[in-house]
Amino acid sequence: MTENDRQLSVDGVPVARYVVDPAIDPRHGPRPYLHPVRTLGGTVVTDAFPADHLWHLGASLAVQDVDGTNLWGGRTYVRDAGYTWRDDHGRIAHTRWEVRDPQRLAHRLEWRDRDATVLLTERRELAARRVGERAWALDIAYALTAPADRDVHLGSPATNGRPGGAGYGGFFWRAVSATPARVCTATAEGEDAVNGSTAPWLAFSGTGPDGAAYTLVLAGLAEGDRWFVRTAMYPGVCVAFAFDRPRVIAAGATRTGRHRVVVTDGALDRDAAAALAAGGTV
């Protein structure tokens, strides 16, 4: 642990490290992120800097196109040109703490372009609590505010012309799975059926590096959000802000989000995941 790291714990058990100000390549989209995140049994359920996408940083909040600035990391998708390396990377920077407790963190941030101009200001809060013998819940809430004098546009590779449902950008969880991951909602199963859906909850099951099964149950889409899911190319799930059309935060306005991720040991079936999404325990 360093001065830039904070730990979230549940009943004294460390469950997540929050890296606040990572010293990483600007092309990887520097931003606060959670990694490793663990089940109460100790299984790691996030990945960071994976070889396939070095800019995937555990669980984080990031958007690839914020008024033309790439805050996601990696290449930028350019219409009629495809993915292109551009000098357009910004940073999501921590500015000050409000709360630093083992079960709750709250702080202020700025979303900046390559020249450090502030695109958005943010207040973010993270909290961890037990929801059963085998499960704990991460609650994340944020408020993104545009400058008083201009609208801010949020986009994705999909809104910039990439086909195939690549509408990612928002609250993204890069998972880890030693075996093919499974994803379902109350009415659909598999990447093709779930990607782009607006289901109230989603269950994602995988296998940690230790070989143990785990399940994530995510909820909290805001109006206009969609689920972005990958299980074949890599394991990951995102609350996508601009899945198939750009979104705008009007001048001086605030976009809020509130999501819950229940992290549990074991591979849950649909009924058990639905019970957790409804506030039950395991």
Rank of each mutant, 00 (worst) to 15 (best):
N4S: 14
S9L: 14
S9C: 14
D11S: 12
V13K: 14
V15I: 11
R17C: 11
R17H: 08
I24R: 13
P32T: 06
G41D: 11
V44C: 03
D47E: 10
D47Y: 01
F49D: 11
S60I: 05
S60D: 11
V63F: 06
V66T: 14
G68D: 08
N70F: 05
W72R: 03
A81G: 06
A81K: 15
G82D: 09
A93I: 09
R96Q: 11
R96F: 02
E98R: 15
R100L: 15
R104K: 15
R104N: 13
R104H: 15
H107R: 15
R108V: 14
R108I: 04
R112F: 10
L120R: 08
R124C: 04
E125P: 00
R129D: 08
R134V: 04
A135G: 10
A135M: 06
A137L: 01
L138F: 07
I140T: 13
L144R: 01
L144A: 00
A146N: 02
R150K: 14
G167A: 11
G169E: 04
A175W: 06
R182S: 10
A186G: 09
A188W: 09
A188T: 15
G190N: 08
T198S: 11
W201M: 02
A203M: 07
S205T: 14
T207D: 01
D210V: 08
V217M: 03
D225I: 00
P235W: 05
G236P: 09
F241Y: 13
F241M: 11
F241P: 03
F243M: 03
I249Q: 03
G257D: 08
H259A: 07
H259T: 07
G266K: 06
L268E: 01
A272E: 14
G280L: 05
T281P: 00
V282Y: 00
